[in-house]
Design a protein around this nucleic acid. Structure first.
Lengths: 176, 176
DNA sequence: ACGAAATGATTGACGTATCAATTATCCGGG
DNA sequence: CCCGGATAATTGATACGTCAATCATTTCGT
């Protein structure tokens, strides 16, 4: 295994024109492994969080809410902070409100708007979930890698980001 | 690139005892970036596949089915091939059958069993989806990385795998 | 000041994922 | 032979994500 790749020219991230060579089966295998592995990590971490009666989605919502001034945020601001579609957030807040983790109030300065407020219950559940969640991330992810691997991964993620930016700049489709 | 690793003590993957140090905020940030980035890639690739009227899940099911002898497989074999829970597969097959992508037949040698059969329609849709899907993976993923980054990523995924194996060996919980 | 376009947020429909429970069949020990 | 446990697969309940459509309010151009 491990084929010598001619590396025809450039790999985007800074390069100009499109890349012509075909994807190798090794690259494809790495892609699949990446998707499978991160998928499994998601699943495991989600299951661990569940023991604190929170889903990964709940956690994502509660995290910025907890940091916010007065533990409250405009719904749309929250959506853009965690990069969710508005409707997704709306559905999710409904479920979280039913469980008394958050509360929705009308916004004083804009009658269309809604404010999401962290409840005492929500804060309590979140606080209890944090340490075990961090421990789980450490156990299943951070403890697996060397310092060098972390740096390499950060580099790879940077490359993927800037590639994505290049692509959306080229086609001019920033998704709302 | 390719740094000599001092291998200070252990980073699980082969090491014995637990690691005591806390997770750094940088490691946490890399974790979040990994999850976000792969999540977005999933989303993008899923949306692209949709244009061929397939979901990512459909594709995962159809891929091994297409390779199989006679384009048919025992349901449980399919499940373990793609590492899905049986009930997940069952639900999904019901939906795919409704769309005439697959068909279910009784198994001749085991009356409990079911065989999943790829239909002509299923084969056709899958065939048409393949090339655009590969192109999308290349465009959004493979084209972003250098050869060195691919090798580093493969190495990282290997480390995560063997770490997971260590963990489940230690706690003896192979998930069924 | 008025009406059209933009904005903030919600809803309904549908597909998908997970868990627990259920049904039907197979198989091996007594 | 037959009974109990293992195995194959499905079902129902519930939570989650996406899309398109909707509704109310605000903003802006003229």
């Amino acid at each position: 295994m491990s084929i010598r790749v001619p590396d025809g020219a450039m790999t985007a991230s800074g390069g100009g024109q499109a890349v012509r060579r075909r994807m190798t089966s090794r690259e494809l295998a790495i892609w699949r492994s990446l998707i499978d592995t991160t998928g499994e990590l998601r699943r495991i971490l989600g299951a661990e969080l569940q023991e604190s009666s929170l889903s990964a989605a709940d956690y994502q919502v509660l995290l910025p809410l907890r940091e916010a001034e007065g533990a409250r945020m405009r719904s749309s601001e929250l959506a853009s902070t965690i990069d969710w579609e508005r409707s997704r957030l709306s559905h999710h807040l409904k479920r979280m409100e039913r469980r008394h983790l958050i509360r929705r109030e009308d916004c004083a300065t804009d009658n269309r708007g809604a404010e999401v407020v962290l409840t005492a219950e929500g804060a309590r559940v979140f606080r209890r979930a944090t340490a075990p969640h961090m421990r789980a991330i450490k156990e299943h992810f951070a403890d697996a890698l060397t310092v060098e691997q972390f740096e390499a991964l950060a580099d790879i993620l940077r490359a993927l980001h800037s590639h994505r930016d290049d692509l959306s700049a080229r086609t001019g489709d920033a998704r709302p």
